[in-house]
Amino acid sequence: PTPPYLKWAESLHSLLDDQEGIQLFRNFLCQEGCADLLDFWFACSGFRKTSQDKRSKLAKAIYRKYIVDGTGIVSRQIKPATKSFIRDCVVRPHPDPAMFEQAQTEIQTTMEENTYPLFLKSDLYLEYT
């Protein structure tokens, strides 16, 4: 069978499907000062599955932590139109479970184009393999 670390190089999705892969990728992102990208990506996935009674509070928590401060790594990678869409959704009593989907896609693209290829070339990954 293919060892997990070779699967991680197939796609970002394969990497994020493996607990050890996530951990190593997160260590790499911490070194680069951008672990929030990964945390936000998982927060968006978790948000979709969150029960309705917690969704409104959680939407505000995600918004405050990653989006409202425009200097953060996540906020800087999300398009202004997407941010204003989220801002409108957050104030609703029953936020849409898909309200962070566009932002998640934008952050995923950032990781696929930048941090993921860098990770595969990093000493951290090479030493692991």
Binding site: L16, Q19, I22, F42, G46, K49, K60, R64
Partner: peptide, 20 residues
Amino acid sequence: IDSEDDLLLECISSAMPKRK
């Protein structure tokens, strides 16, 4: 704010794959 952080952590870990 603490409980907001807890909620966020719970949300993030709920989205992660479980150990195989």
